[in-house]
Design a protein around this nucleic acid. Structure first.
Length: 915
RNA sequence: GCCGGGGUGGCGAAAUGGUAGACGCAACGGACUUAAAAUCCGUUGGGGGGCAACCCUCGUGCGGGUUCGAGUCCCGCCCUCGGCACCA
């Protein structure tokens, strides 16, 4: 392979950087200097290693980190591993090796691959969520959550001890549902310890509750809503998931719903991601309305976003699981209701979506009273009403709701329009705005005003009140897995929960021979966490003679990634999860300055981490309300994949071009048949991966072209945020560029330097400074593809020169350095510099050379703008006038008038006044 | 169905409302070479004209509009990718 010796150069500089710890961020940096915290979403240490799609974001952040260092900014650029969780455990189970060992092995391999790309991480700060020193503090944060609650008035987290103090002082009482109320309930002091704890459990941010959860028998674990697909299957492994009530740890993320939504305004994130989070949180304003039930003491509470349509509520619907179904159902309807309920509950999520939106339901025989009309309206149950949203019951207003309309049509229920649809509106539900009709005191009002008036009326009459409802559910936080953080929790003999003291952390994961989960085909199989098989010496703890059992569930995958960005600031601190002063510096301003990762974490990691961060903020442990000030989603690198006539994937390297069409060329090897040689293959396009045989290994690319070329190619492919196709054949373009750069500065044959200490020409300086401006702008915008294009353009001019002036060569190399650091370091050294260029100041564009070569001239005829000419900056007045005369629009409006040579220059645009 | 991002050469793509296609790949022609590779020089959106330097014309998914001027802004469609989806 001809050209510059990239292999030697890259190894040489990687060794120097590692040996000198060039990119280490010292423990005690000067806090008066500006900082830049640039972070990648840390990866799972997967067993198959990286393909070229993975490091796309890492290369981008690396370029930015290097660029910022050259600007004299303190840079924190760390990397770590999210190593707990299902993938790591499954990999270990498959290979029959303890996850501790496979995880370490995978981390080592990924570290090797990352280092080979020349990434300038601070390797002294590498952490893994599975390190005891790390998960100690994950457990510590869990204890913070357990010991906190959110004050409903302020929306802020506080230590729950404060609430207890207030209760002991008699500021609050407790009602029959163990809810805290201002007055009228039981006094705190009369409650037993167990009763008190039952009250507090309703407020703690970490609590145990028996709730319907997503149970995946084949994974042997429960899953968060976010980990279940629309088809009702597990995101990992695609196994069926069943709803089932289980006692589980929950995190009360709903208590933060309002701030998680509103604080999105504080951050610089892609609008699409903000929107996804807003949709996930699902804030909607409306009202709770309480309906009396005919002949019952019970009432029925519903949530609606359309209180204005109450006059049109002609029936009610309960979710099949609603607790009042049994009490309400009349004897005559009992069998029908029970049958429907059984049928509905046996339906999986798949059945429900597969059957479309056909409405099913059953009449309970009971009636409610519409508080607005006083009429008796029938109460039904139907599975289109979900127990998990609102109150699990609705008032049905078929005239103004498509679902209610469909249900009413199916079961022949009355429909009363309460909003006047436009003329010629069809026979369907009208959800738009219009004057209220058939609505008593609301008639004539628009929807908005009617909502307000009805809400006020409900509050006045005591039938309800305005409220805000969220789609967001509490976060199911237990997993029946081995490879996760153990909870710092003990269970007492009477079921009481005893959190570990901070001084008793960490609660270490026990060594176990058999760590595999208990899979089952039976949806009703009891959960059997692997830790139930842990030795008794681990499971049982005796304190003051009381025998406690450790919690046997572990935390989910997401726990470790909720706060790793804070640990990077102070990774070896044994006394605190992060030093407050360091935290204030590195998280200062708007938090992390740039966070780069895939959009797939929009509602998982990014929402969970924000929740934890807000709790830590409220409790005074961190200094910013939001962790990630600026978020950038890099696109995916996709790749073409090929199938032969049988539909079997053909490896990309076996595809050849045959008259412009792809064809499979299978090598004629002794043990390999080649029936499909030259056969046309079909091309598809998608993610890189094993199954499509289209993954490209970065190690191979580094071998063939060098990692500087790989880095450049990945950035040159297209905009960072876009998905774009990988084409190995295109990689030679940027490789040739680097070869030409090298040959511009180093003689191919004599190895002598071709850089001279001669002054540059005016033309060269103009080119240089324009390029500096372009590249600098592009760096700030993360537009690396256009930055590279600018450098290629400049290099194409330089390549015609026999010698290159030092004043041109050095800034050029500095600008290229963040993207192709190895070759630039080598050139820099050959230019005679002893120090690495990593901290050499970034070149500045000199304004003198940036004058525009064109000007915009606004041509006004009789004070009205008639044309704008773009002309050469050094054009004479006569030339300008001639150009103006040639403009059709000017000529049209001149109508024989003469042009006056009145030219003035406000800034860039020159006004040529004519008339 | 709702929300969001995109549609520009053979391909990846550039273009603060101002010469559309920078830069790269591929292709073609040429130089060097016994030859090939590598390298270097040139051509490359469509159509038309000129001996020529060049010139004309049509072109950014489709149809309208605003503007002296629209790939870019506005309205209405079509296609495509992503997210959500019986959320009251």
């Amino acid at each position: 392979m001809a050209g510059y010796p990239y292999s030697d150069i890259e190894q040489k500089w990687q060794r120097i950087w590692e040996g000198q710890k060039t990119f280490r961020t010292p423990e005690n940096v000067d806090h008066n200097k500006p900082k830049y915290y640039v972070l990648d979403m840390f990866p799972y240490p997967s067993g198959v290693g990286l393909h070229v799609g993975h490091p796309l974001g890492y290369i981008a952040t690396d370029i930015l980190a290097r660029y910022k260092r050259m600007q004299g900014v303190n840079v924190l650029h760390p990397m770590g591993f999210d190593a707990f969780g299902l993938p790591a455990e499954q990999f270990a189970v498959e290979h029959g090796v303890h996850p501790q060992i496979t995880t370490q092995r995978n981390i080592d391999n990924m570290l090797r691959q990352l280092k080979r790309l020349g990434l300038s991480y601070d390797w002294d700060r590498v952490i893994s969520t599975t390190d005891v020193d790390y998960y100690t503090w994950t457990q510590w944060i869990f204890l913070q959550l357990y010991h906190s609650y959110v004050d409903a008035n302020t929306g802020r987290a506080r230590p729950i001890a404060h609430l207890v103090e207030e209760l002991e002082a008699g500021a609050w009482t407790v009602d029959e549902n163990n809810r805290i109320v201002p007055a009228g309930g039981r006094r705190w002091t009369v409650l037993t310890p167990a009763q008190k704890e039952a009250v507090l459990a309703n407020y703690r941010l970490a609590f145990i509750a028996e709730v319907p959860v997503n149970w995946c028998p084949q994974l042997g674990t429960v899953l968060a809503n976010e980990e279940v697909t629309n088809e009702g299957r597990s995101e990992r492994g695609n196994y069926p998931v069943f709803k089932r009530p289980l006692r589980q740890w929950m995190l009360r993320i709903t208590a933060m719903a309002e701030r998680l939504g509103s604080d999105l305004e504080l951050v610089d994130w892609p609008e699409a991601i903000k929107l996804m989070q807003r949709n996930w949180i699902g804030r909607s304003e409306g009202a709770h309305i309480t309906f009396p039930i005919d002949g019952h003491a019970d009432t029925l509470k519903v949530f609606t976003t359309r209180p204005d349509t109450l006059f049109g509520a002609t029936y009610m619907v309960l979710a099949p699981e609603h607790p009042l179904v049994d009490t309400l159902t009349t004897p005559a309807q009992r069998d029908a209701v029970a049958a429907y309920r059984k049928w509905a509950q046996g339906r999986s999520e798949i059945d429900r979506t597969a059957e479309g939106k056909e409405k099913t339901g059953a009449f309970t025989g009971a009636h409610a009273i519409n508080p607005a009309t006083g009429q008796r309206i029938p109460i039904w149950i139907a599975d289109y009403v979900l127990m998990g949203y609102g109150t699990g019951a609705i008032m049905a207003v078929p005239a103004q709701d498509e679902r209610d309309w469909a249900f009413a049509k199916t079961f022949d229920l009355p429909i009363v329009r309460t909003v006047q649809p436009p003329e010629e509106f069809g026979d369907e539900a009208f959800t738009g705005d219009g004057p209220a009709i058939n609505s008593g005191f609301l008639n004539g009002l628009g929807v908005k005003e009617a909502k307000q008036k009805m809400t006020a009326w409900l509050e006045e009459k005591g039938f309800g009140e305005g409220t805000i409802n969220y789609k967001l559910r509490d976060w199911l936080f237990s997993r029946q897995r081995y490879w996760g953080e153990p909870f710092p929790i003990l269970h007492g003999p009477n079921g009481e929960i005893r959190p570990l003291e901070v001084r008793d952390l960490p609660n270490r994961l026990p060594e176990m021979e058999d760590f595999s989960p208990t899979a089952s085909d039976d949806p009703n199989a009891p959960p059997r966490p692997p830790l139930s098989r842990a030795p008794e010496s681990w499971r049982v703890v005796t304190i003051d003679g009381v025998r406690y059992e450790r919690e046997l569930n572990t935390m989910p995958q997401w726990a470790g990634s909720c706060w790793y960005y804070l640990r990077f600031i102070d990774p070896s601190n044994a006394r605190a999860f992060v030093d407050p002063e360091k935290e204030r510096y590195w998280m200062g301003g708007k938090g992390i300055d740039l966070y780069v990762g895939g959009a797939e974490h929009a509602v998982l990691h990014l929402l969970y981490a924000r929740f934890w961060h807000k709790v830590l903020f409220d409790l005074g442990h961190v200094s910013t309300p939001e962790p990630f000030g600026r978020l950038f989603n890099q696109g995916y690198i996709q790749a073409y994949a090929y199938r032969d006539a049988r539909g079997i994937a053909v490896a990309v390297e076996d595809v050849v071009d045959q008259d412009g069409r792809p064809a499979a060329e299978v090598q004629d090897q002794p043990n390999r048949r080649w029936f499909y040689k030259g056969e046309p293959v079909t091309q598809e396009y998608g993610k890189m991966g094993k199954s499509l045989k289209n993954a490209v290994n970065p190690d191979d690319m580094c071998d063939a072209y060098g990692c500087d070329t790989l880095r450049l190619y990945e950035m040159y492919l297209g905009p960072l945020e876009a998905s774009k196709p990988w084409n190995t054949r295109d990689i030679v373009g940027v490789n040739r560029f680097l070869q030409r750069v090298w040959r511009n500065f180093v003689d191919e044959f004599s190895d002598e330097l071709l850089v001279v200490d001669e002054p540059a020409t005016e033309e060269q300086l103009r080119l240089l400074h324009k390029t500096i401006k372009r590249v600098t702008d592009d760096m700030e915008r993360l537009s690396f593809n256009t930055a590279i294009a600018a450098l290629i353009e400049m290099n194409n001019v330089l390549k015609g020169l026999e010698w290159i002036p030092r004043s041109i060569a050095e800034p050029f190399v500095l600008m290229l350095a963040p993207m192709a650091p190895h070759v630039c370091e080598e050139l820099w050294q050959r230019f005679g510099h002893a120090e690495s260029l990593a901290y050499t100041p970034w070149p500045a564009a000199d304004q003198r050379y940036l004058q525009e070569d064109t000007l915009e001239i606004a041509v006004q005829v009789n004070g009205k703008l008639r044309a704008t000419l773009v002309i050469a900056a050094d054009a004479s007045k006569d030339a300008i006038l001639a150009a103006a005369r040639g403009q059709e629009n000017v000529v049209k409006h001149l109508e024989g008038k003469t042009m006056r040579r009145e030219i003035y220059v406000p800034g860039k645009i020159v006004n040529l006044v004519v008339g």
